[in-house]
């Protein structure tokens, strides 16, 4: 087993957010989403992350910023180093790694002008 250090943006829209750092054990080949799911089940169930298809890169929901670049958590592999995970900067932020990514016409409410990270 190797270990990745995940520096993750935490917080709720309307309040101040900040980074928290976690260590995740992984088998080579596993994805960042694998790491986030393990983190939720083993360490902190309050961590908000959105995904649907888990591994197929079909739902496109798990897009976040990984080391500053927009990427899918399900197709980016974990590495034995510090990796910085943040919500998208160009979408309204909701909580932790989750932003309001639905097309505007498919939202219940008009896009909240809320906090961006």
């Amino acid at each position: 087993m190797k270990h990745a250090t995940l520096k993750i943006w935490r917080g709720v829209a309307g309040e101040a957010g900040g980074f928290e750092t976690y260590s995740v054990a992984f088998e080579p080949g596993q994805s960042v989403l694998d790491g986030l799911r393990a983190l939720r089940a083993e360490v902190d169930p309050t961590l908000a992350v959105r995904f649907s298809c888990i591994n197929a890169n079909a739902c496109k929901e798990c897009v976040i910023l990984i080391d500053g670049k927009s990427a899918y958590a399900c197709t980016t592999r974990l590495e034995a180093r510090e990796m910085t995970l943040e919500p998208l900067r160009n979408k309204p932020w909701i909580r932790d790694l989750v932003s309001d990514i639905a097309p505007p016409a498919e939202r219940l409410l008009p896009p909240n002008k809320g906090t961006k990270v």
């Binding site: 591994n55 890169n57 079909a58 592999r77």
Partner: peptide, 9 residues
């Protein structure tokens, strides 16, 4: 196996 990402199992 081996671990395959970005594809449905």
């Amino acid at each position: 196996a081996p671990r395959l990402i970005g594809m449905d199992p």
